[in-house]
């Protein structure tokens, strides 16, 4: 583990031709325009205000001062397609509306553009990353097991768990950013090793 977490000495080994991962790590902490061209996600989709109807759930019956509703759920219905999106993630209606609107926009984009949409690309990127992480983790533990058969079982279990958690991401940009950074810390020093092996 110790060698894995000391990336600096290894940095010099990365050949200038394949610095994609390193760049990706850097851009997560700064801004999107720095991304490498082929890794760039399409812009976040948006939809016009008048293309959907908005409903605050629990809307009927007495309201106002007589009852203190804690439901902050917001439901959007897309007029053209009839797609319904509901959000009750937070206590804030404003926040829930933002969330529902984003999900609706993503759904529509997915229908319209298919694999070229932002969501699809994001998903693809995540699964690509997961695959390579799994591959690396297998390789790493095979190596570790060769050196020290006692460590293997427990360590591997933990690593798998970590990966599971990380691959659950998407939706939220910050969440995505955070989990990717965590992942990179493990991956970065491994990369040069991979190349050496290859």
């Amino acid at each position: 583990m110790r060698t894995l977490l000391s990336p600096l000495p290894n940095l010099g080994n990365i050949s200038p031709g394949v610095p994609g991962r390193l760049r990706l790590l850097r851009t997560l902490s700064t801004s999107i325009p720095n991304l490498k061209k082929n890794d760039q996600l399409p812009p976040r989709p948006n939809i016009p205000d008048d293309s959907f109807t908005k409903r605050f759930l629990k809307g009927s019956g007495p309201g106002g001062q007589k009852i203190n509703k804690t439901s902050s759920a917001v439901q959007l219905t897309h007029l053209q397609t009839g797609i319904v999106v509901k959000s009750q993630a937070t206590r804030s209606r404003t926040q829930n509306e933002h969330i529902a609107r984003r999900i609706l926009a993503e759904k529509l984009e997915l229908i319209e553009k298919g694999t070229e949409s932002r969501v699809a690309k994001k998903q693809e990127r995540a699964s690509r990353k997961k695959r390579s992480a799994e591959k690396k983790s297998r390789r790493k533990y095979r190596k570790l097991a060769d050196e020290n058969p006692g460590v293997r079982a427990g360590e591997e279990g933990r690593q798998d768990e970590d990966l599971e958690e990380e691959s659950e991401e998407d939706k939220d940009e910050e969440e995505l950013g955070a989990s990717e950074v965590v992942k990179m810390r493990i991956q970065l020093p491994l990369k040069p090793t991979d190349q050496v092996e290859r």
């Binding site: 605050f56 106002g64 902050s72 926040q95």
Partner: peptide
């Protein structure tokens, strides 16, 4: 507290809690 638009409104007994209808 109670979220109200982009605001975070403090609530205490003795003062009416803001309602979602009012926000709308």
């Amino acid at each position: 507290t109670q979220p109200f638009g982009e605001l975070d409104i403090k609530c205490r007994p003795g003062v009416l809690i803001p309602r979602p209808e009012t926000e709308v």
